[in-house]
Amino acid sequence: MPVGLQAEPSLGVPGKKRWAMVIDLRRCIGCMSCVCADKAEYDVPLGVWRTIVKVKDTGRYPNTKRHFMPRLCNHCDNPPCVRNCPTEATYKHEDGFVLQRYDRCIACRTCIAACPYNARHVLPKNRDRVRIGGVVDKCTFCNHRVEKGLTPACVQTCLGRSRIFGDLNDPDSEVSHLVSRHKTVVLKPEKGTHPQVYYIKPDRAQTEQVFSSPQSSAARSDADAFYRHNRGSKFFSGVL
């Protein structure tokens, strides 16, 4: 089947784990705890994110609604980022984690180009606490915690208990229960990546956020500031 991955897809393979996250969008309140917990856990610098929560308002006054859409690496079972990496710095773990070897990464950004979910970023070198920089990073599904029997940090703190984590190959796990009992969607299934972050009951406004650029002037001007800040820095020359 897939080539160039260090581990075969494990979804549904007996005796293997397939870690996955279910995000119950009915329960997400956009509190951003996940974003901050994740930044703290890894000393994630400003301007890059392992996880974000997109916000979208819809409707006309007085019938307005607000929708939240947490995003993170999908730990694809068929990850294109891994296949294209020239150094196997990014690799697929047999339990489904898609991980980085920082000491191998040359920051060629091929994997960023390959990921259809914008889940990857180049780590700035100026960090507060951790000294690793100038390499590509992304959400690790908190493998260092999961291996020790803990939930990922963003799941741990999720106020709405919207993020649920577990082994999809275990029929008794909560993620299995949720996925089998609810209608779930994954993002961009047509890309063949087999994403392992499942969303419960998104409505169209929520999934469309995945494909929308900033709408309000406030958001657009922030985007401009972001691109202006990055322009002329080592990468991104001229594109934005």
Binding site: E41, H144, R145, K148, G149, T151, F165, D170, S173, E174
Partner: peptide, 19 residues
């Protein structure tokens, strides 16, 4: 007890760098 979410929810944390 048999828990739906198998992983512990907290009370411990490990360094991602050193484990």
């Amino acid at each position: 007890r048999l828990m739906a979410m198998e992983e512990a929810l907290g009370d411990k944390d490990f360094s991602p760098m050193t484990g």
